[in-house]
């Protein structure tokens, strides 16, 4: 399935919805969205992964890039990753660097940040 990433920014929260396969051939599409989100004044990045079917090592590299690009001032939430994607995040230990949550609740995140 082809990869797609859409970025939405509301106040200080950027939300990127990912679908399809994030691999070496699609990593740049994601990188562009991250660049666009990082250019805004945000404190939260929500990565909606429910529709993301596959995450290769090149894709994971982009998540590490995201973490570094955003810096410590931006909280990153990975929302509803599929089992295979979660396996990759866990196996490589990246799940320790972000907050993995089942459902995105804007109010909860906002209160967690406050």
């Amino acid at each position: 399935m082809t990869f797609n990433a859409t970025l939405e920014i509301i106040d200080n929260i950027a939300q990127i919805s990912l679908s399809g396969e994030l691999d070496a051939s699609t990593a740049l599409i994601f990188q562009e969205k991250i660049g666009a989100a990082a250019a805004q004044d945000i404190n939260t990045l929500i990565l909606m992964m429910k529709e993301l079917e596959y995450l290769s090592s090149a894709g994971l590299r982009m998540l590490i890039f995201t973490k570094q690009k955003m810096g410590p001032g931006v909280a990153i939430y990975v929302v509803s990753p599929q089992e295979m994607v979660m396996d990759t995040l866990e196996k490589t230990g990246f799940h320790h660097s972000v907050n993995v949550i089942d459902e995105y609740d804007a109010a909860k995140i906002a209160s967690a940040l406050s």
């Binding site: 590490i64 866990e90 196996k91 490589t92 230990g93 990246f94 320790h96 660097s97």
Partner: peptide
Amino acid sequence: KATGPAVGMMPNV
């Protein structure tokens, strides 16, 4: 199984 994270991702892990 994995006993730690991938190598080179984060320092001092």
